[in-house]
Design a protein around this nucleic acid. Sequence first.
DNA 1: GCGCATCAGTCATACGTACCACCCCAGGGC
DNA 2: GCCCTGGGGTGGTACGTATGACTGATGCGC
Lengths: 347, 347
Amino acid sequence: MAQAAGVSQSTVSLVLGGKWRGRVSPATARGVREAAERLGYRLNVAARNLRLGTTRTVMLIVPTLDNPFFGPVYTGVARIAARNGFGVVVYPWPEAARGDGAGGSPDGGREAADAERGGEGDGANGLFGGAREAVDGILAMSMAEEALRGFPGTPAVMLDSDPAGAAPTVVFDVAGGARAIAAHLAALGHRRIGHVASAVDAWTFRARGGALAASVEALPGGTLVRTETAIEAGAAREAAGRLLDGPEPPTALVCDDDLIAAGAYKAARARGLDVPRDLSVTGMDDVLLATALEPELTTVGLPAEELGAEGMAALLAVLDGERPPACSLPGRLVVRGSTAPPRAARP
Amino acid sequence: MAQAAGVSQSTVSLVLGGKWRGRVSPATARGVREAAERLGYRLNVAARNLRLGTTRTVMLIVPTLDNPFFGPVYTGVARIAARNGFGVVVYPWPEAARGDGAGGSPDGGREAADAERGGEGDGANGLFGGAREAVDGILAMSMAEEALRGFPGTPAVMLDSDPAGAAPTVVFDVAGGARAIAAHLAALGHRRIGHVASAVDAWTFRARGGALAASVEALPGGTLVRTETAIEAGAAREAAGRLLDGPEPPTALVCDDDLIAAGAYKAARARGLDVPRDLSVTGMDDVLLATALEPELTTVGLPAEELGAEGMAALLAVLDGERPPACSLPGRLVVRGSTAPPRAARP
DNA sequence: GCGCATCAGTCATACGTACCACCCCAGGGC
DNA sequence: GCCCTGGGGTGGTACGTATGACTGATGCGC
């Protein structure tokens, strides 16, 4: 390439690296670029990374791609990253989110494959997957801190995760959201409230449940009945059904997220209950589904894109050697058609 | 590190790289691993990538993270990749999917940022973002082939994209799915059918629309009325409404995906029409939403995970220098509660 | 005409790994 | 005692880039 352009390798690096101003004449620079274009030559990323000791790329770890909620989070991250010359790569890591294998390396089945090919645990830590590990920083969304153990020494910020940990965090004020829902239902006259909780063992759900329980119990005459549900379709419906079929069924169901609320709708319909006349239902997250349901769902909207942006900003601070303060973003109660006064409170 | 373990750098590389069997004694190998553990030492990924000229990582490009449909696709890709010692990284690239900027580099705002910092287009092609570009192969989901222009020379397989292109493809048989829906509605007695099409200009939607139109027009007395909708919430409702408010409204609405179908439900309800008694509605994709709706949606389930797995297998073949044959995966019509004979056909 | 500054570019080196070629040593056959 | 073999390990080099130190040429002030 260098001789194709009639210059030295240094000059090629200068030009293609974009820092030629004042060192290389515009004419020469143009010549180099044209030669590169002609030959389809591009700078070798691995060599650059090695030389610079940096990749200017961060990794966003998410529990799954099945949840559209992470879309806007990525958007926020990518926006701030781009503005600062960073790239973003997404790494879905369900094992870490579920807790199994969170202590291990981020290789998932790779180690198994390694062993299969005769490795029998030699490498000890996952060695394959260059690009995935070659990042300057990590944003871990809805994860336990153990998830970071696979990346010792890599700067990290936790999103929507327990702020009590060692790593800096940016979280939603999910407790505030839960309190807002409780206050809304209390104002409508509800006292006997059901909580259809997510079975996922994550800080965000623990925090929602805790705040909800505290709010309801502080209510005169308030009682909370609780059940858990997996995310599989149908499971939420069954779980909500358990509460509705119990003695003294609740007049309102608070669901840990919007998808669970959809299950609650179906449980209500199956029992001939009208939402919201016979049963109020609330969700959390305000994803597209919330307005696709009939009636539209009362829920708490969480600023997902802002979370991503704040998280990336915090990570940039960490990379600059600073220690960003913990950050909590408030949600917003969105009252739609799924909540109303309980039957008994009406004339 | 080498002297900490009392061996040469070569031996460290051998041991940590996992190919020491027969070259290093087990005792020495253990010593090296212990020293590495003690020092928190790990092999440098960038150096390895440079030396080997490979990263054993592939990139899955998706149009957006907002759509849960891509979750299972990733799962399928990751499964096959892991089995073969490859890592997978996800790169959401909305600009490419929309067609604007598809001819450019995969840098999105990065070039803008570059210019901002004084680059004024010098680098020409995106130079930042080491990890994102350092991949051995690309799987591009629901993309136009132009999206690959940003990665000249990188082996690629297109998923759910126009099979007429130069790159190998793995697609859903969306045309077959559309025909199955048309046949189902025809069997129920529907003749006047509305098509609420996605405004996204992608092969998959063009193929759906084309097959549907052909099927309906082949029907004795069959007519198809068509409208387009954006993905924004509410837009689908409005679009469906346009068809329902026209002269001689259709007795069935075929929607390009499940989310659009949810909008159609709302349009029907707003007009006092019962689904499926007054109006049949169908979707496509069979995402979770399909069973969250009431009534549950008749739709076509697409084998998303299988698509990912087949795609990754095809990419591995390409990396081996082979030329995998085009592959088309059939969908499966799932008849649920949203379709029924039209009113006129009933006694 | 001379010294000095500036411009345009090159040289040489280091980044950390993988692996070929080599070396050393112990043991064994004869 | 000598050659051979093979196991166990090391030396040295190349991968392609970025960059500080250096060089040669040109222009300019005096």
